[in-house]
Amino acid sequence: NALIKQAGLLKKIIDAIKDLIDEATLDCDNDGIYLQAMDSSHVSLVTFYLKKNLFEKYSCNRNLSLGINMTSIAKILKCGMSDDTLLLETNNPIDILSFKFESRRGHKLSQFQLRLMNLEMERLSIPDTEYSCIIEMMCSEFSKVCHDLATIGDSMTITCTKKNVTFDTTGDLGTGIVSLKQGVVGSENDENVYAASIKIVKPVSLSFSLRYLIYFTKASSLSNKVILHMGEEVPLMVEYKIFNTYEEEAGYLRYFLAPKVNE
């Protein structure tokens, strides 16, 4: 039983993953809702965690695994308005998930039911990793870099040093390189504008498929900033933090992408 103040937030989260994964289970317990799924080619992994404080009301008195088809849940979420409140409920036996939307002024109520699926999902264990480089930058900037470089090449090499982070690609038509300096560049409308904030233990340079990175940038509407976690011999983690309507941190959406290696 979970009440979310703005249905639009859940829609944004689902829209950010629905083109990457077909089906997934929502694992619910008393602390929140967790999802983990790989794309069909097993190159990337998506996880999200929606903490209890994302919801106005939240209760889950026993652990549940709800098998969801992503296209179907996206269709239902599209039926609500983004500032509707949304109540999610399951029945007993657990074979449907019900969605009750209520308009902000309370003049319209709508209810939809999603048939749940029996999914045998394998859970992967994601180890706690000490990353060599953690890069924080504006979502819009990361999105632009990925889209720009994808017009030239298929993969992008991210190279992080103490002073800057460089994104580069090579294609048939030529090459492209974008470099962002470490640190705050200036203030705009009382807000600091970062080139990139870099925390570094050791410089790293790794290559990734741009097609997947572009999928990940669909989460850009969830947060101002994106955090890239990089290390040798581990997948890239692209993290978007999720905030509730009181601007408190209330979960995350994380994408993991396996690197490309030169043979």
């Binding site: 790989m38 080619s41 097993h42 190159v43 990337s44 992994l45 394998e122 859970r123 992967l124 264990s125 994601i126 180890p127 993969s155 290559s207 498929s209 011999e233 581990v234 997948p235 993991f256 396996a258 690197p259 490309k260 290696v261 030169n262 043979e263």
Partner: peptide, 14 residues
Amino acid sequence: KETQQEIPEFFTKM
């Protein structure tokens, strides 16, 4: 030549 690695090469089943 570049080869794409896969997630199960890094994360094991629980």
